[in-house]
C-alpha cells in the first residue's frame, strides 16, 4: 500500500480520490487534524486535501440565502460583506483561536469535527442552516441539527465530504456570546447565538457547549416571539428577558468537565441568553 497525499483540483477529482484511496483521511485547514496527528492519536494512511478544490472555496449569494463553501476560513467569515449578511457567524468567527488559526481553519472542518465546543455550530443551529454533502452515492442536504449526531459524531457516510453550508439572509439583529477563560485562543465554556427574523417573526436561540450536540432553546424562543412588538422590534415587558434566560438554561444538558461545571454552564447560559435578547430587542 502506497501512502499518498492527494491534492485534487476539482470537486470531481476529489470525489474520485476519496473513492479510490484506501481509508482516506480528509484534510481541510488541518487545525484539528494536525493536532491529532502531532499528538499521535491519528495516523492516516492516505490523505485527501480539499484546500485546492475551487468549488469548496469562498461564498456566494443565492437569492435569499448565502452558500458558504466548506473550505471558507474564519478569516473570510469575520470581515467584509459576508459579516454584514450573517453577523452572528462573523461574531463567532472573531472569537475563534488566533489570527493564525482563523487563517487556516474552515467552516467545513468545524462541522467535520463536530465538537460540542465548535463555535460555529450554535450559530448554524440558530440560522436553521443546511449542510450539503457529496459522496459516492451523490449529493445530500441535511439540516445542521441532523448532521451533528453526537459528541464528535456526524451523519457523514464513508467517503462523503461536506461541500457547502446554506444559511438564510435575514432582516433583524443577531448576537453571539461566548464565555471562556481568555479573550483569545479559548475553547468555549458556553455559547449563545441569537437570530431575529423580523419578516418571518421568529426568535431563534442556538446554544453550544451545554449538551453533546448544539441545542435550540424552543421554550425560550416561544416566550420571546409572543412578547415582541413586531412593528417596533422591541420587547416592552422587562420581565421577559430574565425569564428568557431561565428557559434557555432549562433547555440544556451540561456536564462537569475540566473546563467548567454543569452548574456554572447553566448559569452562564441564562446570562448570555438574557444579554443577547436585551441587546437585540430591548
Amino acid at each position: 500500500m502506497t501512502p499518498s497525499v492527494a491534492q485534487p483540483r476539482s470537486l470531481d477529482d476529489a470525489v474520485e480520490a476519496l473513492r479510490t484511496a484506501i481509508d482516506p483521511t480528509v484534510l481541510a485547514g488541518g487545525t484539528d487534524l494536525m493536532v491529532a496527528i502531532n499528538a499521535g492519536s491519528r495516523r492516516p494512511t492516505s490523505v485527501v486535501s480539499l484546500i485546492r478544490v475551487p468549488e469548496l472555496q469562498g461564498w456566494h449569494r443565492d437569492g435569499d440565502e448565502v452558500v458558504l463553501g466548506a473550505c471558507l476560513t474564519y478569516a473570510e467569515i469575520e470581515r467584509g460583506e459576508l459579516a454584514s449578511l450573517v453577523p452572528a457567524l462573523a461574531q463567532a468567527a472573531r472569537t475563534i483561536g488566533s489570527p493564525q488559526i482563523r487563517n487556516a481553519a474552515t467552516l467545513g472542518g468545524n462541522l467535520g469535527t463536530a465538537s460540542p465546543a465548535g463555535d460555529s455550530l450554535p450559530v448554524l443551529a440558530a440560522l436553521d442552516a443546511t449542510v450539503e454533502t457529496i459522496g459516492p452515492d451523490g449529493v445530500r442536504t441535511l439540516p445542521v441539527l441532523e448532521f451533528v449526531t453526537g459528541v464528535k459524531r456526524t451523519a457523514l457516510r464513508a467517503q462523503e465530504i461536506i461541500t457547502a453550508v446554506r444559511v438564510p439572509v435575514l432582516r433583524g439583529p443577531q448576537e453571539f456570546l461566548k464565555v471562556g477563560t481568555r479573550n483569545a485562543m479559548v475553547i468555549s465554556v458556553v455559547m449563545a447565538a441569537l437570530v431575529i427574523d423580523l419578516d418571518g417573526r421568529s426568535v431563534r436561540l442556538g446554544l453550544g457547549s451545554v449538551a453533546p450536540v448544539p441545542v435550540r432553546a424552543r421554550d425560550a424562543e416561544a416566550l420571546a416571539e409572543g412578547s415582541v412588538d413586531w412593528d417596533t422590534a422591541r420587547i416592552g415587558d422587562q420581565t421577559v428577558f430574565g425569564r428568557f434566560g431561565e428557559l434557555a438554561a432549562e433547555s440544556t444538558a451540561p456536564i462537569d468537565d475540566h473546563r467548567s461545571t454543569a452548574a456554572y454552564r447553566r448559569h452562564a447560559v441564562s446570562v448570555c441568553a438574557r444579554r443577547a435578547l436585551e441587546r437585540a430587542l430591548r
Binding site: L27, M34, I101
Partner: peptide, 8 residues
Amino acid sequence: LVCACLVL
C-alpha cells in the same frame, strides 16, 4: 500567516 505545526 499560519502555524507550520498545523500544516501537513
